[in-house]
Design a protein around this nucleic acid. Structure first.
Lengths: 195, 195
DNA sequence: CTTTGATCTGAACATTTGTTCAGTTATCAG
DNA sequence: CTGATAACTGAACAAATGTTCAGATCAAAG
């Protein structure tokens, strides 16, 4: 064996993923060429194929990685406390997690249509898992009298849309700190599900 | 002169716009070729250039048309009534208007990045006009004691994100009628800005 | 140093891209 | 019918696309 430790693969691999994430988020999957990604990394286009089977796999891998991270981090939140406490935790988690990785969030939503059918179904299923977690909180709160909700399915999607919308304008150097943003949104979310 | 009345241009023109709207919404601007649009219309690619200067102009024209329609329809709502009445009218209007033309809405949001800088600024300005209209309602309601809002700028964006999110799941053949959807969202919006 | 194999280059490939334009077709005015 | 012209075809263009691969490069193992 030769060239295992000093190999560049542990550097080039992540750099390709970072460059692809950045470019896909900015210009869209279809508008970005493999040559652009390669240039960003400082390598020729052919070298990319040591790290991904093809362009589609690269996109899927980015999205899959993001969704796995999201679900793992969410699972770590636990299920303790009242529905209200759980909803607050979910709200703050969603905002801060998404604010931390705006590009991956953007891609995972915008580029769903660029996925081949098989890959699409996998990502969709993961997203449903996440939405179901919120829906459970809302249903528990309805059953326990904590929340007043007309339709928990719709409320789930409405809340997620509202929270994910933070990413369209939030910048860490902006007027409000993340903590303040979380507080404002938690107030609005809480009120929207209570009378 | 000849061939003015029986001309096909009044048929082909709109059909090109419809095909482009449908294809851009489904696959994205960059992923759709002029030839695909032409095929959909039943014409050769070259013929498209009797109706648009280039691909970019076609996209811009679709977005510009949508934003103009949106602002005109919104202006027709008027400014009468209390802030609460105006907010309800805005909410119901936004949902029904957007539910009627999901493809144009999708494009006008997703393909902003595909616009050249000049075109981008024009569309962005129109969108800000629309957001400002909602912000005015919220500020009036704060001043009059109708609403309790921590930050009207954020509340504006949060409400619009929530409402536009309807388009990600609403289908006219679905479980709920548009009227029911409007009611559910109006309840949530109203509660989110009041104590 | 020599060998080994991972890493990358650089050129090549078949397609596809947006756009142009000379020429054909079709329809109405006179 | 004749002539005019709007509408369209079909071929052509240079440039760019994703992907492949033989060969060069290079760092570590023996």
């Amino acid at each position: 064996m030769a060239r295992t430790t000093g190999s560049h693969s542990e550097i080039t691999g992540p750099r390709i993923r970072e460059a692809a994430l950045r470019l896909f988020a900015r210009h869209g999957y279809a508008a970005v060429s493999m040559r652009q990604i390669a240039t960003e990394v400082g390598v020729q286009a052919g070298a990319l194929y040591n790290y991904t089977a093809d362009k589609q796999s690269l996109l899927f891998s980015l999205m899959r990685g993001h969704m796995d991270e999201l679900l793992a981090a969410h699972a770590a939140l636990g299920q303790d406390g009242s529905p209200t406490a759980r909803l607050e935790r979910f709200t703050r988690f969603h905002i801060s997690f998404h604010a931390d990785r705006p590009q991956a969030v953007f891609i995972s939503y915008m580029e769903l249509r660029s996925l081949e059918p098989n890959n699409f179904q996998i990502i969709e299923a993961l997203r449903r898992d996440y939405e179901d977690a919120l829906e459970s909180i809302l249903r528990d709160g309805m059953a326990g009298g904590d929340f007043t909700i007309a339709d928990p399915k719709i409320a789930t999607l409405a809340v997620i849309a509202m929270l994910t919308g933070v990413n369209t304008w939030y910048r860490s150097a902006g007027r409000l700190s993340l903590e303040e943003v979380e507080q404002v949104y938690w107030d609005m979310v809480h009120r929207s599900v209570t009378e």
